[in-house]
Simulated assay, not measured.
Amino acid sequence: MAHTRNHGLIHGYLLDGKGGALEMDWPAIQAWSEEKGVRWLHFDYSDSHIEKWLTAESGLKPLISEALLAEDPRPRATLIDDGLLIALRGINHNPGAEPEDMVSIRLWLTSSQIISTGKRDLRSVKDMVADFSAKKGVKNAGEFIVDLSDYVIWRMTETLENLDDEISATELEVLSFGGGELRGKLTEIRLQAVALKRYLAPERDALNRIQIEKVTWLSDHHRLQLKEITDRLIRHIEDLDEIRERAAIAHDELGNKLSEQLNRRMYMLAIVTIVFLPLGFLTGLLGVNIAGIPGAQNPNAFNIFLGLIFAVIFVQLILFKFKKWF
């Protein structure tokens, strides 16, 4: 992989301020100074070379380098001097991965540089790189956090729509069939919604925090754009709450249907038991192997007994019908 050959460097760009960027390798990174322009470095934090560079060669404070190397950070935003230390989570679109197993990205942003770290691929990062290739990329750190947040939230839309479609289809299955195997599907949907909200709620707080922090390189226009992105994230969180509630209601409805189905079967078994209870009594009574059984010497006794049994069944059915038991 590319970042392995470059000692943990996944992407390195020097922004040209016009929507494009020049790629940076390690010699260019070492030779960089603020006068040359804003740079964006994206690292694989699990690489030992990156750990060494961040802690000993980058010039960052220990608190910042430790945060960029954190294994499983929750979404947050912290102001340090005139920079922002941010952790965000995006939907996991990697092959074979579960969407709720969200991918984290850690960021340190100042007016002159952007340093981000991750381990697994995040499509939002690829979107940012594609914008540079099309000469439509960000021009400064303020635009970077706006565009990255926008891509992270936008990439959630498809997953939430799929989850909504899945719960809608399951609701129809519950109403039309109500099979017990749907319980597992409903539980899975609820677990996905819970897992997604676990990170989206603090991500909303992080974006809100960015808007109110007094950093000189974040303009009012950037804050307004972040507010719109946060509103979209809030709608996603509300959608997740709705999906959870719908799954819970569908689960209860499924339980009611299964209970009704079980009661119906138990009712039919009870009817059958009631029908055969007197018949069992008669056959048991006449089956006693002692002297004096009526009709023991009569060749027509068996036919008479069968007629008696059918008569009893007929009377019971008429009685059950009259009482509306079925």
Rank of each mutant, 00 (worst) to 15 (best):
R120K: 13
E171C: 05
G37M: 11
Q225V: 00
N298M: 00
K126C: 02
W325M: 06
D205W: 07
R39V: 15
H11Y: 14
L186I: 02
Q316V: 01
S149F: 03
Q211L: 03
E245D: 15
Y267G: 06
Q113R: 15
G178P: 10
P99G: 08
P73L: 08
N208W: 05
R198P: 04
L68M: 09
L109Q: 05
A247I: 07
L22I: 13
A134L: 11
I50L: 11
Q211M: 14
H42G: 07
P299L: 05
T187C: 00
Q113K: 12
L15S: 07
I145F: 08
S46I: 05
I64G: 01
W40N: 09
E66Q: 12
V146L: 07
E171F: 06
E242V: 12
A201Y: 10
D164Q: 14
R235N: 13
K61R: 14
Q225A: 14
A270T: 15
I293N: 09
L285R: 09
S149D: 05
R155W: 05
G184L: 13
L200R: 08
S168K: 14
A247K: 04
E71P: 01
G96Q: 09
G12R: 04
G292L: 10
T283M: 09
D127K: 14
P99W: 09
I210D: 04
R204T: 00
V215L: 10
I80V: 15
E245F: 02
P99V: 09
Y151M: 04
I114K: 06
P299D: 02
K185E: 12
M102H: 03
L226F: 02
N208F: 02
N263G: 00
Q297I: 08
E57A: 12
A193Y: 06
S176A: 13
P62V: 06
N298G: 01
T78L: 13
L258I: 15
P62H: 07
R198N: 06
F322P: 00
G137W: 07
E260T: 13
A97L: 06
K323H: 11
D220L: 11
E98N: 15
E161F: 08
N298P: 02
I167M: 08
N256T: 13
L308T: 10
E35A: 15
L175G: 10
Q113V: 01
F302P: 03
K214L: 00
L79Q: 15
L200N: 06
A270P: 00
I249L: 12
W217K: 02
Q225D: 13
L258S: 12
G96W: 08
E34T: 13
F326M: 14
E181Q: 15
I237F: 09
A56N: 12
S33A: 12
A67T: 03
R39P: 01
L226N: 03
G137C: 08
L15G: 07
N6I: 00
W154K: 14
E34H: 11
G12Y: 04
E173H: 11
A21E: 02
K185Q: 13
L233Y: 06
L186E: 02
L286E: 01
E171L: 06
R223M: 05
L14F: 07
K136L: 09
G137F: 06
D164R: 14
V275R: 01
N208Y: 03
G20S: 11
F310L: 15
L240H: 07
L207E: 03
M128C: 10
R74W: 01
M156F: 12
W32H: 13
G37Q: 11
K36I: 04
K227W: 10
